[in-house]
Nucleic acid binder design. Structure first.
Lengths: 143, 143
DNA sequence: CCTAATCTCTCTAGTCACTAGAGGTTCAAG
DNA sequence: CTTGAACCTCTAGTGACTAGAGAGATTAGG
């Protein structure tokens, strides 16, 4: 019930209208019923669903991961094997990212501090970023 | 000096061969001199440069940011204003990401724990990700 | 010096996750 | 019942690559 147009769904979920249609296209969001004239009519469950996607995306999950996670939540009472696989893969990835971001956070903070009373040649971001030390956890997305 | 082929540069920097050519195409890496037969010949400074790009990318900087940062490092002794702007924007973004990932890390860990002896309906990752509380810092890339 | 294996060249097209625009139709407020 | 906002489909463009075809260059071994 509560019959939302795509525009209202967009405002409620924070996902842009064309993006919602795109998600439908690629099968990430189920095609909703249509009005007489052919316009999409959603119910509130879609708001939840899109928020989930939005936050997941913002945190770096791929659409495939989100699709998998959604499927799991659609039929619970299954054995957890698949969920477990997805989750532990994601956990490792998330931890790796946190570590990398933490390193950069420190460096950016230092840079801002130096910059507050100096010149660019005080800034170590470039050095820091070309530093080979960062390569340890080098199963990065970027080859 | 030290005359690297594109393949050697690739191995030394960790950036794939086609990606190096792509960076040249879009003007992120200067076009190097060529051999008699027309092959690219690099020197060691390019290794540094590509490492910088690689790490920056892996940590979420866009190519435009990296281009800007590079330009700054090419002519230091400038005022730090621009570098500062880039850096503080990135710092805010990085901190926001860390916070979000931290929340997800906790949820994934809990999920794995539940999954260890249970069913999918115990899993709260989806709830967590659709939670509106995450919306506070809502200047997310994903609109 | 010659050959074979390995690189490298350019170019086009594909990927992911959108985003923008054209050109046309439907809905809902007044 | 009109009018203007919102909706429809479709194609094409974005960023940051990645893959493949087909042709030419380089280098190590014999």
């Amino acid at each position: 019930m509560s019959d939302l147009s795509i525009g209202k769904l967009s405002r409620a979920s924070g996902v842009k209208v064309p993006t919602i249609r795109y998600y439908e296209n690629i099968g990430l969001l189920a095609a909703p019923p249509r009005s007489e004239g052919g316009q999409r009519r959603y119910d509130k469950t879609n708001v939840e669903r899109l928020r989930f996607i939005r936050h997941g995306r913002a945190l770096g999950f791929g659409l495939d991961d989100l699709r998998a996670l959604q499927e799991l939540s659609d039929r619970p009472n299954q054995s957890c094997q698949r969920a477990d696989a997805i989750a532990s893969r994601q956990l490792a990835e998330v931890e790796r990212r946190i570590a990398g971001l933490e390193a950069v956070r420190v460096e950016l903070a230092r840079m801002l501090d130096h910059c507050a009373h100096g010149e660019v040649d005080q800034c170590r971001v470039i050095e820091t970023l070309s530093d080979h030390a960062l390569c340890e956890g080098d199963h990065l997305k970027i080859s």
